[in-house]
Design a binder for these strands. Structure first.
Lengths: 232, 232
DNA sequence: ACAAAAGTGTTCCTTCTACACCCATGA
DNA sequence: TCATGGGTGTAGAAGGAACACTTTTGT
């Protein structure tokens, strides 16, 4: 065996599961019970199994962590992280996935016996194990970009939602405030973005808001661009 | 060993190396000398080596195929392809990279003893080995999108080039014609896209064109969007 | 002089932005 | 009737598309 041999690697999957909770962009983390990085938060993940498809493995991990299935969430491949020294236990290549989920009623406990918790992305600041800070950075930037060009924002929302709910997603993920009136028009004038229901929701105070469902469309044309606008 | 064990995988890299040659978008292919898919064209690639960084491995493969180094080209990770049955020889996960190179003076021969050839992307139509057709599709779409939002088009060009050369890249990659006058203005009004030289190039007929170098900027703001415009 | 390609100026139209204004509800 | 959030109209600014027109070369 020389150094020119084919590398022997293990293939891991890591999930950056994002949601909007309590007015902040949050990510699901698990606390590591073993070395290395014992006690530090990390992104949930696991190893690929024999004969298992990559995407199917990501779906499985997501279900184990959030009990969410199929259509209720968004799951896409993010990138591969394969620096030789990224894991002190050996050569482990990680395929990272970005998942977007609504604010879950059952908040945290996964089926694994590890402590899972939602942490605000803004509060993490380099505290994750391995190279997961970099994965999280990439995930957040991908999500921000997806809001511009796709209807991904609806994946952050419950099955029915108001235009105001949707706007809050944009404001929290982008970290800037948007004009409610122009936002409303843009969303409603894009056919297939949202689909009207005949229900309304009464806020604690103020005029009732119409409720909508997700539409068929996935790509946003024209896009909703984040300007260098007024940061909230 | 049950099916719940961690999968044992080999990790391959495949390169979609794109260029503009003879007025067409072309991709570098190698003809397979062994089964499976013997005699069929495939994307060049190879296996990750012990202790080798993923991106470094992609750079190495690109150099082996094109004798191009570092700054003269663009190289970015595309995606991971990991369907269990994607390679009949066993469980091989492939990390695909997109490379953009200028029209090379030394056209084809790689250092390996395999037959390398540039093929027009439009002429391939499902003829590649493994799942390389899908990788190529993803690569072309990524390149098209990159032209909209980044200065990637300069990576298709020689070290010095005219605005007309650059426009040809857009037209060939997008498959649509652009207004030369508006295109010229957009490029020149984006500071950092191209950098003027004081040389000119005389075409066989017509007014000489100013020559430019790549600029510092990588992101294009505002972007140059492909309309649903007049298809060439 | 003429053909061909490079580049400039100008007009029209679409889209974004900002903000005045009206609507519907609970307390 | 007042505070609060939902939603419409509209004027100005900015950017893209189309195209007439000028410039510079080789033959």
């Amino acid at each position: 065996m020389t150094s020119r041999d084919h590398a022997v690697v293990r293939l891991a999957l890591d999930l950056a599961i994002l949601t909007v909770r309590e007015g902040a962009l949050q990510v699901l983390t698990v606390t590591r019970g073993n070395e290395p990085f014992r006690g530090r938060p990390a992104l949930p993940g696991g190893f690929l199994r024999d004969g298992e498809d990559l995407h199917a493995a990501a779906v499985r991990e997501l279900r184990e962590e959030t009990a969410l299935d199929g259509g209720a969430m968004h799951l896409e491949q993010l990138s591969v992280y394969g620096a030789p020294d990224r894991d002190p236990r050996g050569r482990i290549i990680s395929v990272a996935y970005l998942a977007i989920v609504p604010d879950l009623p059952a908040p945290t406990a996964g089926s694994d016996a590890v402590a899972a918790a939602w942490l605000p992305v803004a509060a993490i600041r380099g505290g994750l194990a391995f190279d997961h800070d970099r994965i999280l950075d990439d995930a957040v930037e991908r999500a921000r970009s997806r809001l511009e060009f796709t209807t991904l924002a609806t994946a952050f929302c419950a099955p029915v939602f108001t235009i105001g709910d949707l706007r809050t997603v944009y404001e929290v993920v982008w970290g800037q405030s948007l004009d409610p009136r122009n936002f409303s028009r843009k969303v409603l004038s894009t056919v297939g973005f949202v689909e009207a229901t005949d229900e309304k929701r009464n806020p604690l105070v103020g005029r009732p808001a119409a409720l909508y469902r997700r539409g068929d469309r996935t790509v946003l044309n024209p896009p909703i661009l984040r300007g260098a606008a007024t940061v909230a």
